[in-house]
Design a protein around this nucleic acid. Structure first.
Lengths: 136, 136
DNA sequence: GCTTGACCCTGTAGTTGCTACAGGGTGCAT
DNA sequence: ATGCACCCTGTAGCAACTACAGGGTCAAGC
């Protein structure tokens, strides 16, 4: 299939596919006589793997390691589990951090009673970190 | 005070302070004879406002608007409240998204029973979006 | 008076993960 | 033959910094 078809089949931008090839995440496919990229099922499966991993928030480097494992079925699965577990921890940390932000933003927004910017509690709270109770 | 002192007083990288000046977020300060930047209390307060807002996840453009309001106390505070509310919504959406990711990652990681990468459930799950139950 | 070290300056390039052109070639239908 | 959809390469842009390179300034200590 040509790059446009692969793009539609995986929901990936064409430029992104070429970008992945450029950085070595996808192997360079064969070319037609007109120098068009020609992909097979293996390319599609690999790209789906990459896109799904990206949707889950894995970095390109993490995906590189995961693909490497996937290419070497004789290796230890524990590596994949380690990468995924570490990523899960990061996601949980990010959720905790954002929850703290949400709480503080809720507090700040709730204080607005309208009026002029000169008396604005929102602006005041942004300038004065001491009001936060050490949340961040 | 010199840039190093301002840096320590606000916990901001020196390069970041110069960057903020370059993009017009902080006003250019006076200079000493040796061409060193010389800051006053107003600069420090403004930088604290910027850093605190950044910690809360506001973008530079949002901060520009908030600073603009802060510089014009006669304007309507509702603008500040609108920016903060919109940002709060984004934070809540991000938390919801990350929570879904966490759930799926937990599911994926929990399936690993050790063994070889060829049989790895983690790698399998990454390649097969159909296992996700349409969560994302 | 000379060196050492901490500090400051400008300007440019790198980071992540794409996305968006510019400027051209290919292939098929009308 | 001409329009249009599609493909190619190469480069530049985004956010919000961060990291140099290559140089100037200043106070302390010998």
């Amino acid at each position: 299939m040509k790059i446009g078809e692969l793009s539609r089949a995986t929901g990936t931008n064409i430029e992104t596919i070429r970008y992945y090839e450029r950085i070595g995440l996808l192997p360079a496919p064969a070319r037609t006589d007109a120098n068009y990229r020609s992909y097979g099922d293996a390319h599609r499966a690999r790209l789906r793997f990459v896109r799904h991993s990206r949707e889950l928030g894995f970095t390109i480097d993490e995906i590189r390691s995961l693909l490497d494992l996937s290419d070497h079925p004789e290796r230890d699965c524990a590596d994949a589990d380690r990468i995924a577990s570490a990523h899960l921890e990061q996601v949980e940390a990010k959720i905790a951090q954002l929850s703290a932000l949400r709480d503080e933003l809720t507090r700040i927004v709730g204080r607005c009673r309208g009026g002029l910017a000169g008396d604005c509690r929102v602006i005041e709270a942004l300038g004065d970190h001491g009001q936060c109770g050490g949340a961040h």
